[in-house]
Design a protein around this nucleic acid. Structure first.
Lengths: 203, 203
DNA sequence: GTCTATACAATGATAGAC
DNA sequence: GTCTATCATTGTATAGAC
């Protein structure tokens, strides 16, 4: 039980989760089979099943990882100098960082009707919502910002590395799937500055 | 070759596509097997394969259906009295109509790494983008509106009929996944009214 | 047009060797 | 810890009966 043995920078467990995440994100839920994950992690199916007794357990591992990273991100959002809005919008389509990868991977699971994955996404969304609402104030505007963030995320998830379009590669403007993030942020910052937004709806 | 026989309101072909669409949307790509689709359409696997020679062909059928409905919607968007923005936002999360169902279904295919499905979604997105840009004028604002629409769509796709949340069911305000659409529309209408939005970014 | 029977590959999982 | 059988099940597809 003592861990006096050297712990590699990436344990086998973590490498398996990395592989699972990558396969889900890049090739979808159906392609993320135990064999494919194992192969991608450099071990065999049997080896994988030693670490994660079943696919359900493997999914649990991914969900736990996401949950942890969402918690970290929410903490970071509060201490962000640029403010939560800019933080959220800027980090949304970055498929580079670990949070994004986990989020996209779990999204794939959610689309495959996995209820636990859906619950995890919902929880993450609500955590972010609260964080943004706290500084923005207005619920409608907060929801609007969240939707933009969602749109960016899902857009990035749908059209990954993105094959260049035939047209519209030349102009300086952002293309359909290469949105002008800074422009959007500026737009939203303008909105947050408008004071009397709160009373937009009167039921 | 003469179609003097009565054509049922819903031909078997259409019923199969309906079933495929429904299964994709409600249970994900993996659940939409030939057998499940056939059963849901009230025929057998063999019967299905008479109409659609393979799963690829079945997907072709769905893609063609989406393409047609997108074209119809774009036409409608132009003649819409409420304007394209309100039209787009209002119809986004309505999982009721035929366009939405096809769109969600094809999204599931796209998430499963089907390149044709991705292409179809991209084409649809660009058609809408052009339609909105035409009346809104500003590219950044147009992109922002599209992202909100995307967020609504995918949000609705992730959390279907939606299990009621434990909390936040009592207040009049919209919940995390029951956004205040009219409020958002009002917000966006305000933005479109602001004239000097165009010069938001100066690279 | 629709069905049953069958072929064949792939998936999740178990058992046991190393 | 990791691997190689091996198994039951399911997915797509073909062939041919009705």
């Amino acid at each position: 039980m003592t861990d006096n043995e050297k712990t590699p920078a990436t344990s086998t467990r973590e490498r398996i989760l990395d592989a699972f995440e990558a396969l889900l994100g890049e090739s979808g839920e159906r392609a993320a089979t135990l064999e494919a994950v194992a192969g991608s992690a450099g071990i065999s199916k049997g080896g994988l099943l030693y670490h994660f007794g079943s696919k359900e357990v493997l999914i649990d591992g991914l969900l736990a990882r996401l949950e942890m990273m969402v918690a970290l991100d929410v903490a970071e959002i509060h201490s962000s100098e640029a403010g939560p809005v800019a933080h959220l919008i800027r980090t949304s389509p970055t498929t580079g960082n670990t949070l994004d990868r986990a989020l996209v991977a779990v999204s794939r699971l959610a689309q495959a009707s996995n209820s636990r994955a859906r619950q995890a996404l919902r929880a993450a969304n609500e955590a972010w919502y609260e964080a943004v609402l706290e500084t923005v104030g207005d619920p409608v505007l907060t929801r609007t910002i969240m939707l933009i963030s969602d749109g960016l995320y899902y857009g990035a998830a749908f059209f990954p590395t993105d094959d260049p379009h035939p047209a519209a590669t030349f102009d300086t403007a952002a293309t359909a799937h290469q949105p002008d993030l800074e422009g959007i942020i500026a737009l939203l910052e303008t909105l947050t500055a408008i004071p009397s937004r709160t009373g937009v709806k009167a039921p």
